[in-house]
Nucleic acid binder design. Structure first.
Length: 601
RNA sequence: CGGGGCGUAGCUCAGUCUGGUUAGAGCGCCUGGUUUGGGACCAGGAGGUCGCUAGUUCGAAUCUAGUCGCCCCGACCA
């Protein structure tokens, strides 16, 4: 039997923290010799790291198979034409990586017509279009575990955000909406099982479906400051959503007596902070008046041809931010902040002094969108539509309309810490950082329509396939697991994805007794189907213990001369402090029990 | 893409402001010895296009210009 001897393996651990690593998982992955950076956002997985990654892969594969999904393998190189069919060459922009022609600018070169896949909706739909031509073949869920390439503008946090990464992506095809709902639920359940088995403390969030399209979506998140997504989680756990989408309970009407509206000279005071300081009020008593215009981008070609871009005046409270996803949905079109000349024309004042109360008389036709939190304010302050002036004592309903044509009151802001759960439970929302490890979407027919992927239904009519897509970032699972499970001395792997389940440390490798005992334990554990790493290095005990703590193998068995003289070896769980002395003959069964006991956690 | 920082040995860094021996230290690595249960010690040794290019100068790690790379903040992010 071949031994996994540390001395003959490659585990380049380091004592010092590499300077480029900021977050804990990145530092530990480098220090434990799991990964090595080759370029920005591009990493090699060293033997130990690759073992962990493959453990993750195996769990994902098992659960996908159990959920009835079918594994296939699609190419990394895609003809760009496929992406043009769905209009995503534009939607993806610089994220889509293209091969470079041999001669600059030679578009006839096949290379110039080839991209590296950032995701696989297009190729999988191409397959579906070719073969899924009858309702009798549905439903189908196709998945793969494949490398993705994205031209990330800024890779960061080690393996958490990279230009090349491993993803499990699945695509479901159904004949109708009910079928999609069922397929979606299967994946949702499978994801819960996967992340539980990987030992991740995850939460499920309602998510914005983004440019990929579709109408329902959930993200699987691991809460940690190393993450770059923000989620709104209610304290009692009855609500969780990405802040891109999160809503909250409407704010109650302020019942203060209405004061008179007054104009105040505020020379040069433009920002909320400046005006607040000047007027001695709080941002929560101010109304931010923002001017948006329809984008001239391709999404709105049909509209912008016929009419001038619409102007939208948006009111949010001074301490709130506009959520452009919500705003776009309310406006029914894509908006962007209007250029200064539009604002000057609309308000008749310099930028920084806009307010809603006189806009009824503006020469510029516009739609007024009032955030719900503004609609319930009393005696607020805002711009006077007059350069260097603001007004105080402005009251919604009295001084500007809340009803009527071209006026909408809606939720168009991003929730903030302290808002209450939209479920009505009254539980306060907390904003937390999180790593997105999985995402499920209901796509509908966005891709099947664009690529004309239809099937013949039982009524003999061609219909577009109803699609769902489901992604998991395998590298992120590793990093998130480390973020969630480590201490000052190193990684504490969940058993299920640990590169090895047991580490045998032979403390006196030159002693025959020690080595014989250690090897015997190694053989028995291996025979029991356990992955064992054997630290046979001729190093001092402290050195080897530090390394053991760093690489975080769940169970450590120490075989040393001293303990052996007492007829015992030592058993220690990485996650716990105590060392247990056990006879060499029973250590194997004890270790196996420990591993099985921690496996599903 | 905007702002900031950094490129000197496998790793962490000093030296650069104020140009001038043969470019240094610690960790790691190799050899020998002493040690040996929580990152030992002694002695000897290997390892460098000072990111790259051009310039200034008698002389450049050091000054100038350009360029490439990496990290952080922001923008962006199926």
């Amino acid at each position: 039997m071949r031994f996994m001897r540390w001395s003959r393996y490659l585990i380049p651990t380091t004592k010092e923290v590499p300077k480029d690593a900021v977050v804990a998982s990145h530092q530990l992955m480098l220090r434990a010799g799991l990964i090595r950076q080759l370029a920005a956002g591009i990493y090699s997985y060293l033997p130990l790291g690759y073992r962990a990654l493959r453990k993750v892969e195996r769990i994902v594969r098992e659960e996908m198979d159990r959920a009835g999904a079918i594994e296939l393998h699609m190419p990394v190189m895609h003809p760009i034409e496929l992406w043009q069919q769905t209009g995503r060459t534009q939607a993806m922009g610089d994220v889509l990586l293209k091969l470079r022609p041999v001669k600059d600018g030679d578009e006839s070169d096949w290379r110039a017509q080839t991209v590296l896949g950032p995701t696989h909706e297009e190729p999988v739909t191409e397959i579906a279009r070719a073969y899924l031509n009858s309702y009798k073949l549905l439903p189908v869920n196709l998945y793969q575990i494949q490398v993705k390439f994205r031209g990330e503008a800024r890779p960061k946090s080690g393996v958490l955000r990279t230009r090349e990464f491993l993803m499990k992506d699945a695509y479901s095809f159904d004949r109708d909406k009910a079928g999609l709902d069922a397929s979606y639920q299967k994946m949702y359940d499978a994801y819960c099982r996967i992340f539980s088995r990987c030992g991740l403390p995850y939460i499920v969030c309602e998510a914005e479906s983004g440019p990929i399209g579709g109408d329902a979506s959930h993200e699987f998140m691991v809460l940690t400051d190393a993450g770059e997504d923000f989620v709104a989680v209610s304290e009692n756990g009855d609500y969780a959503a990405n802040t891109e989408r999160a809503t909250c309970a409407p704010l109650p009407q302020d019942e203060s007596l209405m004061q008179e509206m007054k104009e105040v000279h505020t020379p040069g005071q433009r920002t909320i902070e400046e005006v607040c300081a000047f007027l001695k009020t709080k941002p929560a008593q101010m109304i931010k008046t923002l001017v948006y215009a329809e984008t001239s981008k391709s999404q709105n070609v049909e509209k912008s041809k016929s009419e001038a871009p619409g102007v939208f005046v948006v009111l949010v409270r001074g301490d709130h931010e506009v959520n452009e996803n919500k705003l776009n949905r309310v406006a029914g079109t894509r908006l962007e902040l209007a250029p200064p000349e539009t604002i000057r024309k609309l308000t008749g004042a310099e930028v920084g002094f806009a307010g809603p109360h006189t806009l009824g008389k503006s020469v510029v036709a516009h739609t007024l969108i009032v955030d719900q939190a503004v609609a319930v304010m009393r005696n607020a302050a805002t711009g006077a539509n007059k350069t260097d002036y603001h007004v105080t004592g402005i009251n919604p309903g009295r001084d500007f309309p809340l009803t009527g044509d071209h006026v909408t009151v809606a939720d168009v802001r991003t929730v903030i810490d302290g808002d209450l759960s939209p479920t009505g439970s009254g539980s306060p929302i907390r904003i937390k950082k999180a790593i997105e490890i999985g995402h499920v979407f209901k796509l509908g027919t966005k891709y099947s329509d664009a690529m004309k992927a239809t099937f013949l239904d039982s009524d003999g009519k061609p219909k577009p396939l109803i699609m769902g897509c489901y992604g998991i970032g395998l590298n992120r699972i590793m990093a998130a697991a480390i973020e969630a499970h480590h201490d000052e001395t190193g990684i504490i792997w969940p058993t299920s994805i640990a590169p090895f389940a047991v580490l045998i440390v032979a403390l006196d490798p030159r002693e025959k007794d020690v080595m014989d005992t250690a090897e015997k334990i190694y053989n028995e554990l291996t025979a029991a189907g356990i992955d064992v790493l054997f630290d046979d290095r001729d190093e001092r005990a402290g050195f080897k213990f530090k390394d053991a703590d760093l690489i975080g193998i769940p169970v450590r068995i120490t075989v040393g001369r001293k303990a052996l003289a007492e007829g015992v070896v030592e058993l220690k769980e990485r996650a716990k402090g105590e060392v247990e002395k056990v006879g060499p003959e029973e250590v194997v069964s004890r270790a196996v029990a420990l591993i099985l006991g921690t496996m599903s956690k």
